[in-house]
Design a protein around this nucleic acid. Structure first.
Length: 490
RNA sequence: GGCCCCUUAGCUCAAUUGGCAGAGCAAUUGACUCUUAAUCAAUAGGUUGAAGGUUCGAUUCCUUCAGGGGUCACCA
């Protein structure tokens, strides 16, 4: 509100009359609040009286309880909160005048001794007060916090000030990424960065964002996946590579989808999809050791064990089982078409065989895959970059890992036959002509790379945001992305 | 994109059948030197998301729009 802004602005101006700089340059902090708590929490009130240590610390005022010639305040330093106690007789007149100009939300530095109150709360008895920054806006209310989801995401800084548990989610996100990164470094992988702007969007079935480069006067696409560039590196003989970075897909927003999201993709020469299912289990086990001592996550009122090994089911077999449609009929496009027309009379018939299979999988299978499950042997029709199965030429050596009804990982034995890859791209082009606007485009530059010979290899992508959702119990992807995309206001 | 719900003070929320728009916190003024959702006294704060309609009268009923949430569909 403008009135409160002006009142606080007036207070800021009054600081000048006291000879106080409203925006000083630095403040020496001897202890963060968590250090103070760790070091002094176990002392008794009497023992603390013998401790002469002078503490310098700083934080944002989140509560003021004033009693005339003395006051208690709670400060929050972004991690922990701590009480401070100010007495008129303990500070200079100037500092006491400064105290009268403070508001909730202001940031101050304090110097003083540690003591415990009669109610045994660890506190700082202030003998010097330093003004560090003014808040011109009142903070959200103190014990309900900030509930409005929209405001929380639009003004994430307020969310972080008022709802401390939010910071735990992002601390955990950081730990997860650090853990995964060091896992791959330990395995001898090289971390690389490939282009975010592509001339031909590829590596995943998705619609891209478009942009334009002025000097070259060319349209470019934000990448939907780094896959085709990482495989160029395999051709070049980089034996083990991974990339952690953003992908951009021009699609709807939901509890599980943000238009930009973070993926890790990793590739290794001379391996196949079996090796990578094992590697995925090892990766999660490693993560569990650090973040999930009992290997169990809490997911919406139920607990899910992330203890490998994980169940493996075949894509077509599980659809057949859950839908009741016989396996042979599922493979038969005409039969499948009839079945879908009967089961989903209100929906437009998917334009391609692949899209029909995806519909079947999404409707009958996906949401029921709560326990970690590898779905394996995806059909060729929806896997244009995976190598054909050794046992059934209609299938590929591709797996996806599902946990809590979400697709978490997608990996396969990489298709390295350039002639077959060209045929797959051409089949995608036909799907596109049938109306599948997510079908992939022919990337001749990539095919040219394959024509130089790429050794057998495995590759995989893991959605980091969703993994963080699992490990933090967040129900929405917006909770694990600091600034999720929202429609602009005004 | 379809359907359902929500939008009231800076924040969290009330408001009976359609009858004077309220509380707590935050703010302002005053009292108070161990409080912690501090307490006590007083004050101020609103075009009830926007536009239109029905009505003597609309926060309340209707229509449209905007934003948000949920859900279904597509993608990871």
């Amino acid at each position: 509100m403008e009135e409160q802004f002006n009142i606080r602005l007036e207070k800021l101006k009054k600081l000048g009359a006291l000879g106080i700089t409203p925006y000083p340059y630095r403040f020496d902090v001897s202890h963060r609040f968590k250090d103070i708590i760790a070091r002094y929490q176990d002392f008794s009130a009497d023992e603390l009286k013998e401790v002469p240590d002078e503490i310098r610390s700083a934080g944002r005022i989140i509560a003021i309880r004033s009693m005339g010639k003395s006051a208690f305040m709670h400060l929050f330093d972004g991690e922990k909160k701590l009480q401070i106690y100010l007495r008129k007789e303990m500070v200079t007149e100037r500092d006491f005048a400064l105290y009268h100009l403070l508001d909730i939300g202001d940031i101050i530095g304090v110097k003083g001794r540690i003591f415990k109150t009669h109610t045994h709360e660890l506190s700082i008895l202030v003998n010097e007060l330093t003004f560090l920054a003014k808040s011109f806006h009142p903070l959200p209310e103190k014990w309900h916090g900030l509930q409005d989801k929209e405001l929380r995401f639009r003004q994430r800084y307020l969310d972080l000030i008022v709802n401390p548990e939010v910071k735990d989610i992002f601390r955990k996100r950081s730990l997860i990424i650090q853990n995964i990164r060091s896992f791959f470094h330990q395995q001898g992988y090289i971390e690389v960065e490939t282009p975010m702007m592509h001339q031909i969007p590829g590596g995943a079935s998705a619609r891209p964002f478009t942009t334009h480069h002025n000097a070259l006067n060319i349209d470019l696409f934000l990448r939907v996946a780094p896959e085709l560039y990482l495989k160029r590196l395999l051709v070049g003989g980089m034996e083990k590579v991974f990339e952690i970075n953003r992908n951009f897909r021009n699609e709807g927003i939901s509890m599980m989808h943000n238009p930009e999201f973070t993926m890790i993709e990793f590739y290794e020469l001379y391996k196949d999809f079996n090796d990578y299912m094992n590697l995925t289990e090892a990766l999660l086990l490693n993560l569990n050791r650090e973040l999930l001592p009992d290997n169990t996550i809490q997911w919406q009122e139920r607990s899910i064990s992330l203890q490998p090994p994980f169940k493996r089911v075949k894509f077509m077999a599980i659809i057949a089982e859950k839908s009741g449609l016989a396996l042979e009929q599922l493979w038969d496009e005409a039969e499948l078409k009839k079945f879908i027309a009967r089961q989903f009379p209100d929906e437009p018939l998917p334009p391609t065989f692949g899209k029909m299979l995806e519909l079947m999988f999404d409707f009958y299978v996906e949401k029921n895959l709560i326990e970690p499950t590898f779905v394996i042997n995806y059909p060729k029709a929806i896997s244009p970059l995976s190598k054909m199965s050794r046992t059934d030429e209609r299938e590929t050596e591709r797996f996806e890992l599902y946990i809590a009804g979400m697709e978490i990982a997608n990996g396969f034995s990489e298709l390295n036959d350039p002639l077959e890859q060209r045929r797959r791209f051409e089949a995608q082009l036909q799907d596109r002509e049938k109306g599948d606007d997510e079908a992939q485009l022919i990337d001749n530059n990539f095919l040219n790379a394959l024509e130089y010979g790429m050794a057998p290899a495995a590759g995989e992508g893991i959605g980091i945001d969703r993994l963080v959702m699992l490990y933090t119990g967040a129900a929405s992807i917006k909770e694990v992305i600091l600034f999720p995309l929202l429609r602009p206001r005004e």
